[in-house]
Design a protein around this nucleic acid. Structure first.
Lengths: 114, 114
DNA sequence: ATTCTTCAACGACAACGGTAGTAGGCGTCC
DNA sequence: GGACGCCTACTACCGTTGTCGTTGAAGAAT
């Protein structure tokens, strides 16, 4: 859900529009409720700009995704990242370019280990 | 939660004991409720054995984890697995042995592509 | 036969996630 | 100066998740 504002600070209506663009047909008030709930959890902040509030993310996509991945690894593999990695590689498809990038990353791991 | 019976078919009480061993202090009835709910969702099955029911998993850890990973990739990266992979490698630590295994896997991808 | 233990069924309940309706304020446009 | 439209606040509903208590049946113990 919150993936949605890695597109800059937006007003409620704008958020709703973006959602509609993505095929997510929700009512204005739904979006508003969501945003206020997220604000309570400190994941977004709002400023009064003009008449309407403008909401912006307080935490980065990076950090969200890091913690989501972490918790999935914990749940599925008791915290062992390697099996997760293997599974990911086996299940999903990668382009040659991605494979090359991946290989490079691994080489980096060798030179600068742990 | 369901990570818990990749240790063979168990009775309710046994499941509870395993949970307690893992520091998860839940009441008997809680476990029972869980198991029956899981049975309704067809993720476990039960047979009457002796006096008590014995529950066993109907779906493999593999398939659960595949679908969980998939849905996380969808949520976080719109279905693109590569960024997820990169993040995973950057965030988590791997032993030399795991790195070697990983490298081998990548070589396999090259020879047997797509 | 009465008590003790074990088990399953049923139901309860709070918290949360997802969705939305209604109410009331404030500006604007004829 | 009322009608229209956008804005927030408050409230509500339902389904799921996590937790458990009570109850009653059925077997074991005394």
């Amino acid at each position: 859900m919150r993936v949605l504002w890695d597109d800059g600070p937006l007003t409620v209506r704008d958020v709703m529009k973006r959602l509609h663009d993505r095929g997510r047909m929700v009512a204005y008030t739904t979006v508003l409720t969501f945003l206020t709930r997220l604000e309570q959890k400190n994941v977004v902040a709002s400023d009064k700009r003009d008449t309407a509030y403008v909401y912006r993310a307080r935490i980065s996509r990076q950090s969200v995704s890091a913690s989501r991945i972490r918790s999935l690894v914990d749940q599925l593999y008791d915290g062992a990242a390697a099996p997760m990695l293997l599974q990911l590689i086996e299940n999903e498809k990668f382009s040659p370019g991605e494979i090359a990038q991946l290989r490079k990353l691994i080489d980096d791991l060798d030179t600068k280990p742990n």
